[in-house]
Nucleic acid binder design. Structure first.
Length: 432
DNA sequence: TCATATT
């Protein structure tokens, strides 16, 4: 089966995918291709677009024919060039999972705690050249009973995987080794987030669970996803070792319960969804006024909060009043929260010391009294989904932003005093 | 502590 040269492009074995951030949304794939080709061989550029609007999301993939070419592109461009219209330099790196794939990296589990690198190496070297091997260890150098291992080629790694996984018991061990492809960084993060989430929802008073977490969760991912992947299906053959030993693995315990938890969260709190907490559509910023149906003048509402609950009073009450204002019906006008809509200059606020439990929605609720809120964004840790306690609020007029500053800056919300100021402006004025 | 985005 000779492979024609024309098919090299689709040779996923050798080619390398790079992720590129800080790409101005107006740039075309052809323009980007031309630019990257100045530095390296590039087969293809794919702009990453919003699924719904098809608008650029400000980043793209670049496919290079080899790792060498990919590295050339990274070295020449990463943090080195700022495209016209971008506020910071290009971010060029291997796309998620590329490194793991290219390194033919395996995870080895169920190692006896007392085996050494040398013993593992002796076993695995039968299947190929080991480029890297590392047993995971805890604080006192105690083995965690697993290791990462890199082979020179995919074929070698696959041979080892198929020969050893579930079949080979190390001396003195009653259970066979587990060998699987190492998780990607993304998978690790997904697991972290799930774990953090499950802990959060096990906590008492979980009625006030972050709404933002629901939307952020990779729930669609859950059913197939299985902790350490010990039950990995199909690709490498069915599991041929007994399941029971896995129950001793920390990862195992997090696996099934977590999945159930996802269902439980939806199941046991049927009132959650109607209150728009669970999986809201991307448009709820403009929808919270109705909490006080007759209220038209924003200041009246703000004044109400401030005067009935002076700053010296209980902070919790303030927060509660604001949050609960949204748990009602929604009304028409919708601007997306997610899609970083910026207002005109002077109408965008940077907010710090946002209460931990606030998501985009709560932030919008707290700030919509002062004008039409175009968008809000609370930043969350990518891995854990935990709020970083800062974010943005955009209005459509600078006057609204000013009144928000005067009313909300220093306002005690949750435990701390909000810091409300104009957002820094990177791009002074846009060129056409 | 200032919009970082993985089809």
């Amino acid at each position: 089966m000779a492979e024609g040269k024309k098919e090299r492009k689709s040779n996923s074995e050798e080619s390398v995918k790079l992720f590129v951030g800080q790409v101005p949304k107006h740039m075309t794939e052809a323009q980007l291709l031309a630019m990257f080709q100045e530095f390296a061989l590039v087969d293809e550029v794919n702009i990453i677009k919003d699924k719904a609007t098809r608008a650029s999301r400000g980043c793209c993939f670049v496919i290079c024919p080899s790792r060498q070419e990919a590295d050339k592109a990274v070295n020449a461009c990463h943090n080195k060039k700022t495209l016209p219209g971008a506020s910071s330099p290009l971010q060029v790196k291997y796309a998620d999972g590329e490194l793991e794939r290219l390194e033919h990296k395996l995870f080895v589990g169920m190692l006896p705690k007392n085996v050494s690198e040398a013993e593992v190496s002796a076993l695995f070297t039968k299947y190929g050249t080991i480029k890297d091997l590392q047993i995971l260890r805890g604080s006192q150098q105690t083995s965690k009973g697993c290791a990462f291992l890199k082979y020179e080629t995919k074929e070698q790694a696959l041979a080892a995987l198929e020969a050893i996984n579930g079949k080979y018991k190390m001396e003195g061990s009653s259970v066979p080794l587990v060998v699987k492809w190492a998780d990607t960084e993304k998978e690790r993060q997904a697991r972290k987030a799930l774990k953090a989430q499950s802990q959060a929802s096990n906590a008492p008073n979980n009625d006030s669970q972050h709404p933002s977490l629901f939307g952020a969760l990779p729930m669609g991912y859950v059913p197939q996803y299985n902790g350490y992947g010990y039950q990995a299906p199909g690709t490498y053959g069915p599991m041929q070792y007994p399941l029971s030993p896995m129950q001793n693995q920390p990862g195992f315990h997090n696996m099934i319960p977590t999945v159930n938890q996802g269902n439980a969260l939806r199941g046991i709190t049927p009132d959650l969804a109607p209150r728009s907490y669970a999986m809201p559509p991307a448009s709820y910023v403009g929808s919270a006024y109705p909490a006080v149906p007759g209220l038209q003048h924003p200041m009246a509402y703000a004044g109400g909060i401030m005067s009935h609950r002076p700053l010296s009073g209980s902070p919790g009450s303030v927060q509660h009043a604001v949050v609960s204002s949204n748990s009602s019906t929604s009304s028409g006008t919708s601007k997306s929260t997610g899609g970083q809509i910026e207002g005109p200059p002077g109408a965008n606020l940077f907010i710090y010391h946002i209460p931990q439990e606030f998501g985009d929605q709560e932030l919008a609720n707290a700030f919509q009294a002062f004008g039409r809120v175009l968008s809000t964004k609370v930043f969350v840790d990518k891995a854990t989904g935990v709020s970083k306690c800062f974010g943005f609020v955009s209005y459509d007029s600078p006057e609204d932003a000013q009144s928000a500053i005067s009313m909300m800056n220093g306002c005690q919300l949750g435990g701390k005093k909000l810091k409300v100021q104009l957002k820094r402006d990177n791009k002074q004025n846009k060129p056409y």
